[in-house]
Computed example of a mutant assay.
Amino acid sequence: MAFDKKNIPQWLVHTLFWSTLAILLFFPFLSESRTIPYGLGAKLLLAIALFYLNYYYLAPKLLLKDRMWTYIGLSVLLLLATGILSNLVHPPMGPDDLPRRAARMRPFTDNGPGAFRFLLMTTIIFAVPYIFGTMLKVYTEWQKNEDLRKLVEKEKIQSELQFLKTQLNPHFLFNSLNTIYSLSVKQSPDTSEAVINLSELMRYMLYEADKRLVPLAKELEYIKSYVALQRLRLSNSEDVSLKISGEERGKFVPPLLFISFIENAFKYGTDYNGKTFVKINLSINNESIHLQVTNIIGTFKAQSKSSGVGLENVKNRLNYLYPHAHVLLIADDGKTYEVNLTLNFKNYELHNN
Results as ranks from 00 to 15, higher is better:
Phe3Leu: 13
Lys6Met: 07
Ile8Met: 06
Leu12His: 02
Phe17Pro: 03
Ala22Asn: 03
Ile23Phe: 15
Phe26Glu: 09
Phe29Arg: 12
Leu30Asn: 11
Ser31Glu: 15
Ser31Cys: 14
Glu32Ala: 14
Arg34Asn: 12
Thr35Gln: 15
Ala42Met: 15
Leu45Gln: 05
Ala47Pro: 05
Ala47Ile: 08
Phe51Ile: 06
Pro60Gly: 02
Thr70Met: 00
Tyr71Asp: 05
Ile72Tyr: 05
Gly73His: 00
Gly73Glu: 00
Ser75Pro: 03
Leu78Gly: 10
Ala81Arg: 07
Thr82Gly: 07
Gly83Lys: 00
Gly83Asp: 05
Ile84Lys: 06
Leu85His: 00
Asn87Ala: 14
Val89Trp: 10
Val89Asn: 07
His90Thr: 10
His90Trp: 11
Gly94Pro: 03
Asp97Ile: 05
Leu98Trp: 10
Phe108Ser: 10
Thr109Gln: 06
Gly112Gln: 06
Gly112Asp: 11
Pro113Gln: 05
Gly114Asp: 15
Ile124Glu: 06
Ala127Asp: 03
Pro129Ala: 08
Pro129Lys: 06
Phe132Trp: 15
Phe132Asp: 01
Thr134Glu: 02
Leu148Ile: 13
Leu151Trp: 11
Val152His: 14
Glu153Trp: 08
Glu155Asn: 15
Lys156Asp: 07
Leu161Gln: 07
Thr166Asn: 15
Leu168Thr: 02
His171Leu: 14
His171Gly: 09
Phe174Leu: 09
Asn175Met: 05
Ser184Arg: 12
Val185Asp: 01
Val185Gln: 09
Ser192Asp: 13
Tyr204Trp: 13
Tyr207Ala: 11
Leu213Glu: 05
Val214Lys: 02
Pro215Gln: 08
Pro215Met: 06
Lys218Cys: 04
Val227Ile: 08
Ala228Met: 09
Ser235Ala: 14
Glu238Asp: 15
Ser241Thr: 05
Ile244His: 07
Gly246Cys: 11
Arg249Phe: 08
Lys251Thr: 02
Phe252Met: 12
Val253Tyr: 00
Pro254Cys: 04
Leu256Arg: 04
Leu257Arg: 00
Ile259Trp: 00
Ser260Trp: 02
Phe261Asn: 02
Ile262Trp: 01
Ile262Tyr: 00
Glu263Tyr: 08
Tyr268Ile: 06
Tyr268Phe: 14
Gly274Asp: 01
Leu282Thr: 06
Asn286Phe: 10
Gln292Trp: 04
Val293Cys: 08
Val293Thr: 14
Asn295Ala: 08
Ile296Gln: 12
Glu312Lys: 15
Glu312His: 13
Asn313Glu: 12
Arg317Thr: 10
Ala325His: 04
His326Met: 10
Leu328Pro: 05
Leu328Asn: 02
Leu329Phe: 10
Asp333Glu: 12
Asp333Cys: 09
Tyr337Arg: 08
Asn340Ala: 07
His351Leu: 10
Asn352Gly: 05
